[in-house]
Simulated scan of single mutants.
Amino acid sequence: MTTEPPQQGGSGPRPLDRRSPLPLWAQLSADLRRRMEAGAFTAQFPAEHRLTAEYEVSRHTVREALRSLRADGLVIAERGRASRLDTRPLQQPLGSLYSLFRELEGQGVEQRSEVLRLERTADATVAGHLELVADAPLVVLERLRLADGEPLAHDTAYLPAEFAEPLLEADFGHTSLYAELSGRCGVKVTGGRERIQPFLPDIRQAWLLGLADREPAFAIERLGHSGARPVEWRETVVRGDRFAFVAEWSDNSRAVALAPRAACPSS
């Protein structure tokens, strides 16, 4: 089987310069960006084996180039499927009570979940967050959240079993935890707080989310309240190449309070 020779212009591939000090993967990444801007790949992004043949490079070189494109949010890596262009970034407002299910559906994105765990459990650390005794029974819901069929987030929520037991009968394939919590348990989450920080997923999380080794993501810890009572502790890992957090501010926004600087010891 013969491969068509690289094209010098338009949206076709250009030869890589093996005498250049620039690594082959970086040259390949740059040429793929050029081709995207020229309108290539709108129907389908080429598979790894096709790129290795077109550019006459190793699969390792192709994967490094694709990793760079994913890091910049240009390409989506789908577990068990070919990569494709990322044409619709997802945004989440900060400083508001939100349901990921409702936010995705509101942006026209099909939301679906693979339930990995739904059972009774106990966890002393989580119980502490929820102001419960260490051995208090909990309900845990662990899901892989999918947006248009692509992995977006790994989400684990814990709730006190004393009121969350009915959730064990729910089908969380295509529904909101907060909707089920309100409808089945009569508990409404009214507020809370979140902490968001960069994060390197572990091997299992990276595999679930379709991330390359040591590709960063966002880690979100959420403590949800119903009135003054803590009712939900949630740990979420969100793909950084598919998600953006957005905040609104004004000239009367409250300033961030910085921790006082430690005093220098006297000599």
Rank of each mutant, 00 (worst) to 15 (best):
V109F: 01
T156L: 15
D123P: 02
E165K: 05
V133D: 07
D155T: 05
C185M: 09
G128M: 06
P151I: 10
Q205H: 06
K188R: 15
G186N: 07
P201V: 04
A157F: 05
A170I: 06
E103H: 13
V139Q: 08
D155N: 12
L141A: 04
Y178W: 07
V140W: 09
R193V: 08
A134S: 10
E165G: 03
S176L: 12
L130G: 10
L168K: 09
V115A: 06
A179R: 13
P216W: 07
I196R: 10
R112G: 06
A161Q: 01
V139D: 07
L159G: 08
V189Y: 06
G191T: 13
D171A: 06
S176H: 06
G191R: 13
H174Q: 14
S182G: 02
K188P: 01
R184C: 08
S99I: 13
A217I: 01
L146R: 08
G191V: 15
L168R: 09
E119A: 15
L144N: 00
A147H: 01
S99W: 14
L167F: 04
E114W: 07
I203M: 13
L138W: 08
E162V: 04
S113H: 12
Q205W: 02
V139R: 04
A134V: 02
S176T: 01
V140I: 09
V115S: 11
P166W: 01
G128F: 06
A206E: 14
A124S: 13
E169D: 14
I203D: 13
G149N: 03
D213P: 02
A179H: 11
L116D: 09
E131A: 13
A206R: 15
A127S: 05
G173C: 06
R145N: 05
H154C: 03
Y158F: 13
Q205C: 13
L200R: 08
I203R: 15
P160N: 04
H129Q: 14
G191E: 12
V126A: 05
G186Y: 06
L146D: 09
A164H: 08
G108L: 13
E169W: 12
A161H: 03
L118K: 10
A219G: 11
E194H: 00
F172M: 10
R120L: 15
W207H: 11
